[in-house]
């Protein structure tokens, strides 16, 4: 397990050195999205009002931002679950020139494939610690605010050592959570035993599932 400090825009070498379980701190520009923006762009065919540069960082999240004295102020920040954006994973990597996606949880097989092809990784927070993060983020601006609303609009952040996040998908097809899942499966049987659930237990079917 190594720790890396990365600065956007990222190059192939930045990404290729990373392995699942490594920790990263992020600096430089990034932008945010949730479902509404991805549906708007990838399903409904609108174009982004800005062009993400080669090697961009995307954070799946919906921050709480308020306007105070004409300035945007970040109240709280926590990456949101990437699992539910799987259908747009490949499109976002290819069309938005991504080298790193930060989000809670992880992503699926098709995105993993796209990540191998385009040298991209997914990193995930292993804590819920907004206030170790908010000071590392400066808000640079927002697009499509009227169309998307405050949570779903793409915010532009400038990051200063934002992290740590753990690499849960590297660009070699590995996923950190696979090992945990395997361990949990092995422990499940022992847990059944502890709870007095017979190994051959089957539910009496009261209805079709």
């Amino acid at each position: 397990m190594a720790t890396y400090e990365l600065r956007a825009p990222l190059k192939d070498e930045d990404v290729m050195q990373l392995r699942v379980g490594d920790l990263v701190y992020l600096s430089g520009p990034c932008f945010t999205c949730r479902s509404k923006l991805q549906r708007y762009i990838f399903d409904e065919g609108h174009t982004l009002p800005f062009t993400p540069e080669e090697g961009s960082i995307l954070i799946h999240n919906g921050p709480i931002v308020v306007k105070e004295d004409g300035k945007w102020k970040l109240m709280s920040f926590m990456p949101t679950s990437s699992l539910r954006f799987e259908k747009w994973g490949r499109a976002s990597i290819e069309q938005w020139n991504l080298k790193l996606i930060c989000g809670k949880t992880t992503m699926g097989a098709e995105t993993a494939k796209a990540m191998q092809e385009h040298r991209c990784v997914h990193v995930s927070p292993q804590s819920v610690s907004p206030f170790l993060w908010v000071d590392a983020i400066e808000i640079r601006g927002v697009d499509l605010f009227d169309e998307m609303g405050s949570i779903e609009a793409p915010w532009h952040f400038e990051m200063d050592k934002l992290g740590p996040f753990v690499v849960d998908m590297d660009c070699y097809g590995n996923n950190l959570f696979d090992a945990v899942t395997e361990q949990v499966e092995a422990n499940r049987k022992k847990a059944y035993e502890k709870l007095g659930i017979p190994a051959d237990f089957e539910y009496t079917r009261l209805y079709d599932e």
Binding site: G62, S129, P130, L132
Partner: peptide
């Protein structure tokens, strides 16, 4: 580290009078 960071952030949320998690 995850548990420690979360615990620290909970304390800071109270101190700064801000939502402990943005998903309220």
């Amino acid at each position: 580290k995850g548990l420690e960071d979360t615990y620290k952030s909970m304390g800071l949320a109270e101190l700064r009078d801000k939502p402990a998690c943005p998903d309220t």
